[in-house]
Nucleic acid binder design. Structure first.
Lengths: 351, 351
DNA sequence: TTGTACGCGTTATCAA
DNA sequence: TTGATAACGCGTACAA
């Protein structure tokens, strides 16, 4: 006398128990269409009796042609991708525009051939978060599915809505400030150049082989002011990485050591400052440090970082709105955001 | 002469073009079943000609009864939930066990009635991340769907696999250390007590009304050593919140001010230390600080925090494994993890 | 090795 | 206001 398995009841079962047709029962749950109070009550009763959870999402998706899911394609391991405050802000913005509208966000860590199969994940649209590397391949796989695609800071691609940032121009403005302060020996601490994310000195070969769009753009902006600037590419956007890069750049002969460092993120910049302090190099008197992002650095440093503030949440919102517009049948256009230079206490005239 | 719309081709269309039946074409894409090289090639060709992206995920899900999606139910706004390093570590662990197996993670921010509809999201199983509040209601909605449920640090619930932590016992061990060091005036800085997340002094009313399981357990552990300990509940797990709480607790008369503070997270503890330093209170000589979590505090503080190290990634992995086991037809059992006290440089004998 | 038949659980359309 | 019918796009017995 074993308890019978209790399989998921179907709409048909509920309808049968209520003594109505499946289509009528469907109306009760979807709310679309006129149903008499009496039958509505009977159907609800039957549903309760069977412990019916409502229409099966998969069947509904198939029938309606919509899943209510938006894919968010990230390049990294999951935790890694979301350790970047900028991506978190983006997620917040996306959430405001999408999750609050009832969409779920399907996070798809995708690095090249590994990871989730982009062509098999159920979704109505996709947002590409940090996929500048190998972007083309993932876009290709997704475009075949005829779903709207939104890419954050990626090279322009036909049929893909871009949410862009003035990475080169903004960095150029920051570099110009340093130049005006008299700096000549300037070094770079960049974001990872590619999927490998290995820390190491910038070389023409490594830069050429790099696939990270944002990093490359910011390098370009810096070089437009300091043409031959060298530096180090970090293995991630973190205080620890900035610290390591800072030690490497600042450990040498004081006469030749850089008087300013352009870091490609605020976390990297904070790490550089930490390294400088450890080495007894005063910021900003002996070393100016420029960041990028404009995030809050609670507790990490007491300096007010000079940095390029980017509208990260706005970028997420714009991406979310683009998705909604596309799903509504519209043809959203790309958006370009601009960063603003916020001068803090980490930049000063060259010593 | 407008370009005709290019609708998503179906498997049937591909089959037709290739001159085979739909079922044969299906075999080509699923790989299951023997197909001659010749027909396989013809089907692939037809698919290429039509720019076919592969079987429709939704239809496939309906037919197979699996979506390949695991829901991750979070309590907060998205960015907020992932700003907690512990949740990030959990996500990493989950990713290792699930994303690497091809599952996508569907992030569902759910706070009470608002947010995504849990009964409408397509998923094969769900992991409840920080849903101790209002847990019962979300579990109810999900259990009707007959999908496996895994809850991280939640009150035991029938039919839900628990991934638990010794929050009370671990805190008790930390508190015991403080007691042995001679501390008597001890204050708490707790995680948010409920969904409201308002910062404020602990009162019996607020504690009773609180719904956050982890916070309550850790309070319980602390009180088992210091029965009447009061304190402040933070509005989140961040350095800034810890800082604010620290200022409030330490600003008073030195003769009555606490000599030790038990913070319920490392970020809160770091904030408390910052506040103490601002007030000229030396850590650990004049104030001992205890954290919880055992995360890396790169750059935030130079102290080595005395804290309770919890195996966060392991928790995520365990949750992922439980999901896989349940999906494979097994009956995974709950797992209880233990934290270990790591004594650093932020605790010392009471002054 | 290939094709036929059927159903997965819904919802849209239309007629009653 | 309700019900019958037909898809949605695919996978899987089973038969050929």
């Amino acid at each position: 006398m074993s308890e019978p398995a209790n399989p998921r009841p179907t709409l048909a079962a509920v309808a049968a128990l209520a003594g109505v047709s499946a289509s009528t029962a469907s109306l009760v749950f979807s709310g679309a269409g006129p149903v008499s109070e009496a039958t509505r009550a009977r159907v609800r009763e039957a549903a309760a009796a069977l412990d019916y959870a409502g229409p099966d999402p998969t069947a509904r998706s198939l029938r309606r042609g919509r899943t209510g899911v938006i894919g968010v394609v990230t390049e990294d391991r999951l935790g890694e991708a979301f350790r970047d405050p900028i991506n978190l802000a983006l997620l917040d913005g996306l959430g405001e525009e999408l999750a609050d509208e009832g969409y779920g966000l399907l996070v798809l860590p995708w690095s090249g051939p590994a990871g989730v199969d982009l062509s098999a994940a159920p979704m109505d649209a996709a947002v590409l978060l940090g996929c500048s590397a190998d972007l083309a391949r993932s876009v290709e796989a997704l475009q075949r599915r005829r779903i709207p695609l939104v890419a954050i800071e990626a090279p322009a691609l036909p049929g893909v809505v871009g949410i862009d940032l003035d990475n080169a121009e903004a960095t150029r403005r920051g570099a110009t400030l340093l130049r005006e302060l008299g700096h000549e020996r300037v070094a770079l601490v960049t974001l990872p150049l590619d999927l490998d994310r290995t820390r190491g000195p910038l070389t023409p070969e490594r830069e050429a082989a790099g696939s990270a769009f944002t990093a490359a753009e910011r390098i370009r902006g810096a070089r437009s002011v300091f043409p031959d600037t060298a530096g180090i590419s970090a293995a991630g956007s973190s205080v620890a990485e900035g610290h390591a890069a800072g030690l490497a750049l600042l450990g040498g002969d004081p006469a030749h050591r850089p008087t300013a460092i352009i870091a490609q993120s605020d976390l990297l910049a904070a790490g550089v400052i930490l390294a400088a302090e450890e080495l007894g190099i005063a910021v900003p008197d002996q070393l100016s440090v420029l960041g990028f992002d404009g995030i809050r650095l609670d507790g990490i440093t007491t300096h007010r970082l000079t940095t390029l503030v980017q509208p990260a949440i706005e970028k997420g919102r714009a991406a979310g709105r683009a998705v909604r517009e596309a799903l509504a049948g519209g043809a959203p256009s790309s958006v370009a955001f601009v960063s603003s230079l916020r001068v803090g206490t980490t930049t000063a005239p060259a010593p």
